[in-house]
């Protein structure tokens, strides 16, 4: 309910923004350009409204900041499963979310999907250390499989709602473990198998308030933070146990 009221408030501003760019085939206006992660952050929704000129289908691609990932695998040695080798995967976006009004494969040819980066397994990733092609391919496949399993890379054809023939609202869920950094939201207008309009917006995700303070303390003054926090943890442990103990002793006749 509150969400809709919010929408009602920002809607005129949105409409004005869209009006100012009348004549373009595709205009997208994001609800905000910054997402703050505060103590009560449990994921959020990113909204964007837009208008299209003429009929067509929409594809929205959300790409998160790059992320370093370590992949490891278990190998079988005799009857035992043990930790095997590991690699680093660099250069891959933390999230790749594809939203469309219809399944993307039915809108664009595979070549066009590849050209616009609309394949979930299309991102180029670097496997470190460098391996032979077939070995690297195993890791690459595992990487995309795990990313899709986590829901970081996914396709969804229900997130965009059309209002009449011109207006649309896209509601894009963002998970709570979202990477900090700049996200790009690229919207494509597709008509009879061809991309006829394109608009890019960006938003930034950052830590705010206590979260930011703790993060900075833990990184900028790591050793001082470690010593002070460990001492504080020990003091807390003693304090919490000592108070009830004393009270119990005093209560005794």
């Amino acid at each position: 309910m509150r969400r809709w009221l919010c929408l009602l408030v920002v809607l005129p501003a949105w409409m004005a923004a869209i009006q100012s760019r009348a004549g373009e085939p595709l205009v997208v206006v994001p609800e905000k350009d910054q997402v703050d992660i505060t103590t009560d952050f449990a994921g959020t929704e990113f909204k964007a409204v837009g208008a299209i000129e003429g009929a067509g289908d929409l594809i929205i691609k959300v790409v998160g900041p790059q992320q370093e990932v370590t992949l490891s695998r278990q190998i079988k040695l005799g009857p035992f499963w043990m930790g095997g080798d590991r690699v680093r995967v660099a250069g891959a976006p933390s999230v790749l979310l594809l939203y469309a009004t219809r399944p993307i494969a039915s809108l664009l040819s595979r070549a066009d999907q590849e050209k616009h980066g609309l394949l979930l397994e299309g991102a180029t990733v670097r496997i470190e250390p460098q391996l032979q092609a077939h070995a690297a391919e195993d890791w690459r496949k595992a990487f995309f499989r795990l990313k899709e399993k986590r829901g970081d890379y996914r396709e969804d054809d229900r997130a965009i709602k059309m209002f009449g023939k011109r207006l649309f609202i896209a509601t894009l869920p963002l998970p709570s473990d979202i990477q900090v950094g700049t996200f790009s939201v690229e919207t494509l207008l597709v008509r009879s198998g061809r991309v006829v309009g394109r608009d890019v917006a960006r938003f930034r995700v950052r830590l705010a308030g206590l979260e930011r303070w703790v993060w900075n303390a833990a990184h900028d003054h790591a050793w001082a933070f470690g010593v002070l926090f460990t001492l504080a943890a020990m003091a807390l442990g003693v304090l919490l146990n000592a108070i009830p103990y004393r009270r119990a002793r005093h209560a005794r006749p």
């Binding site: 370093e68 990932v69 370590t70 992949l71 490891s72 695998r73 278990q74 990487f143 795990l146 986590r150």
Partner: peptide, 8 residues
């Protein structure tokens, strides 16, 4: 799943 992913 023999593969495991840890995100830095």
């Amino acid at each position: 799943e023999p593969y495991e992913m840890s995100i830095e």
